[in-house]
Design a protein around this nucleic acid. Sequence first.
RNA 1: GUCCCAGUAGCUCAGCAGGAUAGAGCAACAGCCUUCUAAGCUGUGGGUCGCAGGUUCGAAUCCUGCCUGGGACGCCA
Length: 563
Amino acid sequence: MKGKQLFAKKIAEETIGVLTEDEVLEKIEFPKYQEQGDLAFPCFELAKVYKKNPASIATELATKTKSSYFSKVVSEGPYVNCFLNKKHVSKEVLVEIQTKKEAYGSLSVGQGEKVTIDFSSPNIAKPFSMGHLRSTVIGNAYANILEKCGYKAIRINHLGDWGTQFGKLISAYYRWGNEQVVRQDPIKELLKLYVRFHEEAEVDSRLEEEGRLWFLKLEQGDKKALELWQWFREVSLEEFKGIYKLLNVNFDSYNGEAFYNDKMEETIQLLKGEGLLSTSQGAEVVTLEEHNLPPCLIRKSDGATLYATRDLTAAIYRHKKYQFAKSVYVVGQEQSLHFQQVFLVLKKLGFNWASQLEHLPFGFILQNGKKMSTRKGKVVLLENVLREAIAMAEKSIEEKNPTLQNKSKVAHDVGIGAIIFQDLKTDPQHSVEFSLKDMLRFEGATGPYVQYTHARACSILRKSNRYNGNESLDGLSDEPSWSVVKKLMDFPTKVQESYEQANPSEIATYLLSLCREFNKYYAHCKILQEDNQLASRLALVECAAIVIKEGLSLLGMQAPSEM
RNA sequence: GUCCCAGUAGCUCAGCAGGAUAGAGCAACAGCCUUCUAAGCUGUGGGUCGCAGGUUCGAAUCCUGCCUGGGACGCCA
């Protein structure tokens, strides 16, 4: 990275009055092909100013740009190509990583400020679906990235534990439910009831009515309704916590929608006080005509509250409680309009912190090109998938490394890692077709591939019994190791990009490229070989292990040292 | 109908604050384990970057229109 800065400085010195150092820095690119060097500066812009052809400008600049940091600077067509001094730069990079260890790549932009991050948020009495998996792993990874950037992340699981759906469920339970049956396998039975409700409601419209009525009762504190709700919530949460344990995800708060019940009246009064509420078709709404958006529904015509009311209340509560610098919602893209509305209503209420709210949408998990639907009962249960992944990892270990210690722990880390990585490697915004086959794949561009690379690196370090990381090194200048060093140099930039774009997949794809380079290196160089480069090679292996482990940790994955 | 998102190799995806020869993985085929973990590495084949215009010295990348798929659009969340 310093090389880039220096290159920019040198170029700027030669183009005084035309380009500033920062402008040069912006234009510098990384050539695609190794023969073209490590850094490149295109001269098209200068050609316009100097009214000369870019190639001759490049030639001129190339001869003038010199530093002990560069091994050579040459022109190639309209580009000035810079080759860094491999030995010099690699030594500096390796020492930096060895010194900073897992703190390598950390940023301080957050300055310890708080960011609340609302993610996972499954619905009570429904199975934990693949869609919630996305929210969970993306949210958790983004929270880790925020922390890497100096923020204090507050992880909030905004449980879907309130709403009309519970009226429907209670109604269904009273119609067809049986306590014994539900106790045996709560979520599965409750889902059955929920699905049946929707099936029957299609032919009998009175059911919808009844469901709404039960929810109203629930909201008014009806004892029987509350008891059932409480029961549904408890058994569900228990099951969810099992999944979080498997995924190794923790929350600072499980305050779901119900938590805001007694706080919503205040929000409604606030809206009323500001004169924002109006009545429309019997419901109370905040109009957003000036933004060309449909109105935000605050209270239904039957007096019950809505999703938006709860989200408004939650935002206000969270700001009061945490004084966040940012508040992020990792929720599916189908809710984009909803968040747009909620954020605008808060702005209309005069909260200047409304601009610090951010919806981080993600795409659907599709089945045959269509969104999965819980209502029709067509869901793939996450827990089964996780268990299957672990079992497959176990089988793999039996085949490949039967004498491994800690087999079950490693199988867990690898199986879960495969699932998490599969999800995080694609851009969150993109919808993805559900594929069990891809999730359970351990070869190629997968989590286990990255973990395996790490384990290999660790294995070498273990075998080099004399290496302790304190040997003085003189750097490496061969091509295979240089490719790895360049990747290692990229890590801080990637951390920053993944933060700025709120995109964990930046880290995942980066790790794949680093591992690819490392594995090439591993295949082509004998590392444990007694010569005067041994310490440098081992340092390279150690640094690769550090960065891979830290990268995986940002994604919420473990990095076993053997597998 | 209005708005949002996507369309890159047979499949899954990178690349998209414009830049040199469009990259991986899977699948197919051909190789590499008496030497650091073969969950790996090497090679071969495979592309009108949805279509048509435009901006630019230069477009997969930016703009406009169209086509295709998905989603959202008042009492679900």
